[in-house]
Amino acid sequence: MTWLLIILYKSVWGGIAALGFAALFNVPVRSFFHIFLFGGIGVFIKFTLLHFNFNIALSSLAGAVAIGFLSIPAAHYKHTPPLIFYIPAVIPMIPGILAYRMILGLISLTGNPKVATYGATLSETVNYGLKVVFILISLSVGVVIPMLLLRKESVKDIKVPFTRK
């Protein structure tokens, strides 16, 4: 069960990373705790699925969709639009390392690469690049999927159980 502990540890850091962006975006103070929680949940889902060998884009999508769904009741409860929760919360899932490797690959491809290693560098770069693109699309589309599925213009029109009026 050590993997679970490691993922929980990472989730806490994921929540903290979300809080950093919350401060940067000047969110209302009352939404801090939910942003921390959702950031952690997103990271937890992503890394858990990755542990069970799911595709990285799909794992990120699952995390983002979960955050999107959770943002709707939170928006009701805290009287604030859902984007205030989901934007800071998905940012910790952005694949920084992969993007960095892609850029390094692009740089070495634009230089004067050795013929022997060109093919390997090219395929690595394309692989990293595609992953980055698909993860970014998954994250951005994932958080709005709940709103698309519920087909309402505003969260106020969605009936959420157990909320105060």
């Binding site: 809080l19 962006f21 910790p92």
Partner: peptide, 23 residues
């Protein structure tokens, strides 16, 4: 009002540490 500058800087610093931990 925005959050005090030291708080934003600290939280963003922690966010950086968070990213590093995720990696």
């Amino acid at each position: 009002p925005r959050f005090p500058r030291w708080l934003v800087l600290t939280l963003v610093g922690l966010a950086g540490a968070g990213f590093c931990s995720l990696a």
